[in-house]
Nucleic acid binder design. Structure first.
Lengths: 223, 223
DNA sequence: GGAGTTAAATGACCCCTGGTCACCGGTCAA
DNA sequence: TTGACCGGTGACCAGGGGTCATTTAACTCC
């Protein structure tokens, strides 16, 4: 008679068709995103994600095998969307200055904190508890988008070679990850950084990213 | 009679003098470090740290209030040591080229993976569950070392201003954090990156860091 | 529209790990 | 000798990720 006194409630209609399942998957991703935006990866509980969509905790695990898989899927979506946005902007116009490109990249990341925060968690946290398949699918997508971006970069900035364009992307990725972490700090640290003499440790994500990319490009052009 | 059947064992002599406590603190840090080097932050268990030093789990919490505090203390040590090493090297010689500096910085980080891995965890993980006091003490130390480094940078590279030297440190910090994460990946991801066409996603920490810093400095000089 | 079948959803349960605390006992000053 | 102090202990607790036997909605076929 184990578990015989199960409560009687089925809140939501069952997702039987593939499109319904996909919709439910989306709901879960949206819930995870909203909770993550308000707190942090560690603070988001799978039970909360479930509650927010009106489902039971166990149901979440029907759609995502682990918490990390859920958030990696979220990152996957956000990354695809961001690359599409960036590549769209890179497609316009003829030849650009390095500073123009830096501004374009930095601007494309405005309001994309969720994306960059997750990006910073990718290797450290998200890929720790995930299947090979999901990791590969994710990286395959990154690779594709990166290829397009590299090609567009060479169009806009003729002084870039295939090699330097690829390197640039790597370095910008590193900068985005690193600067996001420095700018997006824990409440305790934020309190400490309020002190006047701590000013040198305060980081403005957009400003620093723009500056760094501009400098990198000037360096590449001066070669 | 709660907990009345406590086992009878006192493995290690008690640390009564301050220096003994300090030594025990060091042992705990060393144990944490060894375990972290073999695995990851999430995989290191406080019980393991205790076992490795021959202490009971509860004892660890007499020395460090939380797991994060333990690792932040470890980072504090490693960071101080690394800055000392770097500043020592920066003190030699007259005027350098940007490439020389880049090589010096990158070389000073060779074999310091533990340091850079922890650095990458700092804002995301370590400062999440730590007292204001510890955070402030840590940042105070960073600030001091950074000041010295900025001054030395301006000596070696005369084209740097106080402002650009500070910015350079920020950008290098971001690059170190970001590149370490990209280079030091989870086993699952490593497996995926073995595939030939994944080559563009493989990152050589030292090589990329050297390249990025060199480019940054060329950009600053070309201003 | 009733019987049978499939599989989505449930939630009690398991387990692991960070963190607590009442108790133990070695040491040393009085 | 003794009693207070305090470092150390480990059983215990809390809470969150993940499992699975069971329930039952929804669809199929007659």
């Amino acid at each position: 008679m184990a578990g015989a006194l199960a409560a009687k409630r089925v809140a939501l209609p069952r997702a039987r068709r593939d499109e319904d399942k996909e919709a439910r998957r989306r709901e879960l991703l949206d819930a995870a995103r909203a909770l993550f935006e308000a707190t942090s990866f560690a603070q988001v509980k799978m039970a909360d994600v479930a509650a927010r969509t009106g489902l039971a905790k166990g149901t979440v695990f029907l759609y995502f095998p682990t918490k990390e898989a859920l958030f990696l899927a979220l990152l996957d979506d956000l990354l695809t969307a961001w690359f599409a946005k960036l590549n769209g902007r890179l497609a316009e116009g003829g030849t650009w200055t390095g500073h123009q490109l830096a501004c374009t990249v930095a601007q494309s990341l405005e309001g994309e904190e969720t994306f960059t925060r997750l990006l910073a968690l990718m290797q450290t946290v998200l890929e720790q508890n995930v299947t090979v398949e999901q990791t590969q699918a994710f990286k395959e997508r990154v690779l594709g988008a990166m290829g397009t971006t590299a090609a567009l970069l060479q169009e806009r900035l003729p002084f870039l070679t295939a090699r330097t364009a690829g390197q640039l992307i790597t370095h910008v990725h590193a900068l985005v990850t690193g600067l996001r972490q420095m700018a997006d700090i824990a409440p305790v640290a934020r309190e400490v950084l309020t002190l006047p003499h701590m000013a040198p440790l305060r980081v403005d994500f957009t400003a620093e990213l723009t500056a760094a990319i501009t400098t990198l490009l000037r360096g590449l052009q001066a070669r």
